[in-house]
C-alpha cells in the first residue's frame, strides 16, 4: 500500500508546525512529508489552515514554532524570495504576474540573465527570450511566438502558463499550485492536470491546493485533509474516495478510525493530530 517513493528520504519535511496570530492559532502542530515525484493534494474547509501552511512553505509567513527540513537539512525562509532560491516555487491563485511587462520579463523577474558590456551589466534579452520561448512552447503551444507582448493582452489561461513557466524556469524541487484550475475552462483543466503529471514524472514534489476534489483524486498520490489548523488524515488516493474526504473535511475525523494509510511511514503525522 505504501508507495515506493515514500521509502526514499522526503524532499520536504514539515514537523509540528505551529502558527499563532496573537490568540488565534492558524496551525496547531501540522506535519507533512513530501517526496520526489509525488503530488499531494491538500484539502480542507475555509479556515482549515491550508493557505497558512502554503504561506509558511513558500516563505511568505514564518512559523511560530516547528521545523522545516529541505532534503534533510533544517531551513527557514524570511521571504518568498529565499524559498524560491531554495527551489520551492508557488503558482499563486491570482498568478502574480505584472500586466504591463512582457512574458519574458515576468518569467525572469528578479533573476534576469545579464551580460557585461564595457563593464556595465546589461539585460541579455535575447537569451531570456530564447529560454522563455522553449519553456512556453512546452506549456502553451502557440504562445511562444508572443513572449515580447505584455501579459495584459493574454487570456486567463495564457497568464497562468506564464506563471507556471516562471515557477519552472529555475529547476525547482517543489512546486505549489494554489487553486490552479479555479479560473480555467474544462479543456484547460485537462491540460493543467496533464502538466501536473509531467511535473511529477520529472521528479518534482507537487502540492496541489484545490476545491475540486475530482482533480486531486485524478492526479495526486496522496490527499492531506486539514481542519482547524491540524492534520485530520493523510491518505493515499487509492484507499479513499471523494465521499470519505468530504466527511473528513466536515467532521474532522472524530467519528472515524485512524486510517491505515498513515501507517509507519508517517508516524509523526498521526501523533500530532491529538496535539
Amino acid at each position: 500500500m505504501i508507495q515506493q517513493s515514500t521509502d526514499a528520504a522526503p524532499v520536504v519535511e514539515l514537523r509540528n508546525i505551529e502558527k499563532r496570530y496573537g490568540q488565534v492559532s492558524a496551525l496547531r502542530g501540522m506535519s507533512l512529508n513530501l517526496h520526489k515525484g509525488e503530488a499531494v493534494g491538500i484539502v480542507g474547509d475555509n479556515g482549515a489552515g491550508k493557505s497558512t501552511l502554503v504561506k509558511i512553505l513558500c516563505g511568505a509567513v514564518q512559523p511560530t514554532s516547528g521545523e522545516i527540513r529541505l532534503n534533510g537539512k533544517p531551513i527557514g525562509f524570511n521571504s518568498p524570495h529565499e524559498a524560491r532560491l531554495s527551489g520551492i516555487e508557488i503558482v499563486y491563485q491570482d498568478l502574480a504576474v505584472i500586466g504591463h511587462l512582457t512574458i519574458t520579463q515576468n518569467v525572469f523577474l528578479g533573476r534576469e540573465e545579464t551580460r557585461s558590456f564595457a563593464g556595465v551589466k546589461l539585460l541579455d534579452n535575447r537569451k531570456m527570450d530564447r529560454i522563455t520561448r522553449k519553456l512556453i512552447a512546452g506549456l502553451d503551444p502557440g504562445l511562444e511566438n508572443r513572449t515580447r507582448v505584455s501579459v495584459d493582452s493574454l487570456s486567463g489561461g495564457q497568464k497562468q502558463s506564464v506563471a507556471v513557466a516562471r515557477a519552472m524556469a529555475f529547476g525547482p524541487k517543489v512546486m505549489i499550485l494554489d487553486e490552479p484550475t479555479a479560473a480555467l475552462s474544462v479543456e484547460k483543466i485537462e491540460r493543467m492536470l496533464t502538466l501536473i503529471r509531467t511535473l511529477k514524472e520529472s521528479g518534482l514534489a507537487v502540492i496541489l491546493i484545490s476545491h475540486r476534489l475530482q482533480d486531486i483524486m485524478t492526479v495526486c498520490d496522496r490527499v492531506v485533509v486539514m481542519k482547524s489548523g491540524a492534520l485530520v488524515r493523510d491518505l493515499h488516493v487509492c484507499t479513499t474516495d471523494i465521499d470519505e474526504i468530504v466527511k473528513l473535511m466536515v467532521s474532522g475525523g472524530e467519528m472515524g478510525a485512524v486510517s491505515g494509510a498513515l501507517g509507519s511511514a508517517h508516524p509523526e503525522g498521526a501523533s500530532t493530530r491529538s496535539g
Binding site: P80, L109, E112, L122, L123
Partner: peptide, 27 residues
Amino acid sequence: ILLNKTQMGLYIRALGGSEHIARLVGL
C-alpha cells in the same frame, strides 16, 4: 540605457506595475 537595458530599469517598471509582486519576487 538605465531604464530599458538594465535590471534596475526593469525593476523600476516592476515596482510601478505591482509593488506587491515586486516584493514577492524579492526585488
